[in-house]
Nucleic acid binder design. Structure first.
Lengths: 203, 203
DNA sequence: GAATATTTGTACCATTTCGCATAAAATTTA
DNA sequence: TAAATTTTATGCGAAATGGTACAAATATTC
């Protein structure tokens, strides 16, 4: 059952790349304010091609959210390398997050999920669902690393890893919001440093 | 120089009330997805009246943001009553926040500022400015209460009140996002409890 | 009561919006 | 090379959008 070449005219674009370009548009403008013309221009695909490949605007937006979730989880997992101290893991998570949040043409864009999906979460159940699932997955990844720390005595034996992980995430959520609000890199890095201290204990 | 009654046909509406009704619309739909028809229906004002009294859609939205900022600051200040222990202050802040965040017709609406202003913050500088200013004011209010705690020995003398206040706010930011994402009240209350412990120290 | 000032309601306009119909183009299979 | 299949490009269209012109309505001031 090997995959033969699909018959018919071949696509002149790479779906993953297009989703990435669409993400940039949504990231800057939000879902509702992003028009199909904006998306068409950024992806260099005309509307019928976008429709044929991805469905309507909401479908395409959901694809960009899923892509961001996956990318983020890869970065998070790498930062959580258990060979490193938990303190270092957290510092890396926040550093990687800030690298993403502080990037942007006109202003720092913050977290794609938090900055754009929250706005739509009430009216679009599927968006709220992706948002909820993503936040939970991030929490879980951190929780598992913390459970390891508890086993290894790096964290106190009575630590509630699940709750502590949610607090570690909370710092990241705050960085996301503050970055989009225009806080300086210095301010955000200071919050990240103290966040590490408070989650892992001051040394 | 006393204020005489303004001449001309009097307004048949209360501006504050209208801004409150408009806020509900923006809260559920976000700025971009809220149409003037939605706003007109919710406020029972036709478009020319809205325009005459508040300016264009962005002006009206900024009014709703300012109103929310003011309301929130009042609630925050009340919760920060210095006659109570800091621990109790924080618990009240989170409880008041959750009261607001978990309210909603179809789904919990989260924080009006974080859920709707972040999406527009890149394209609309004035929105980003209100968002930034609001977050800073909340931080400052908490910081001042914490400085008092340091003076009174409730917090260690070497406490960095400004940073600790930002961490306390971070927990609130996370509650805001998670509420809008659909987390349960129980989950959020657990985060709030552990947030108090981590900021004030476990007892 | 007349003049003035402001608000309100109706209707409208130009633009933008999303989405699709249709046909041309490009590729595989027969 | 012809048929079949899928993608691309042009262009259309119905609906919704933000915003406004204009006149009627309602108050104050003179």
């Amino acid at each position: 059952m090997k995959s033969e070449k699909k018959q018919g005219r071949p696509r002149a674009f790479d779906a993953k790349a297009v989703i990435g370009q669409a993400r940039e548009v949504f990231w800057d403008r939000g879902f509702s304010a992003a028009s199909l013309d904006n998306l068409s221009a950024a992806t260099k695909l005309n509307r019928p091609s976008l429709y044929g490949a991805f469905g309507d605007k909401e479908d395409l937006y959901l694809d960009t959210l899923e892509g961001y979730r996956e990318d983020s989880l890869v970065i998070l997992s790498a930062a959580l390398n258990p060979a490193l101290p938990l303190r270092e893991n957290l510092a890396r998570i926040y550093a990687e997050a800030l690298k993403i949040y502080l990037h942007g043409e006109t202003a720092a864009r913050g977290c794609f999920l938090i900055s754009t999906a929250t706005a739509e979460a009430i009216q679009h159940d599927r968006v709220r669902e992706v948002l909820r699932r993503s936040l939970n997955e991030f929490d879980d990844a951190i929780k598992e690393r913390m459970e390891l720390s508890v086993e290894q005595g790096e964290l106190p034996a009575d630590t509630d890893a699940a709750t502590l992980a949610k607090l570690a995430s909370a710092v990241m959520h705050s960085l996301a919001v503050r970055a989009r609000a225009g806080d300086t890199r210095e301010t955000l890095e200071a919050i990240a440093r103290s966040g590490v201290d408070f989650v892992c204990g001051r040394r």
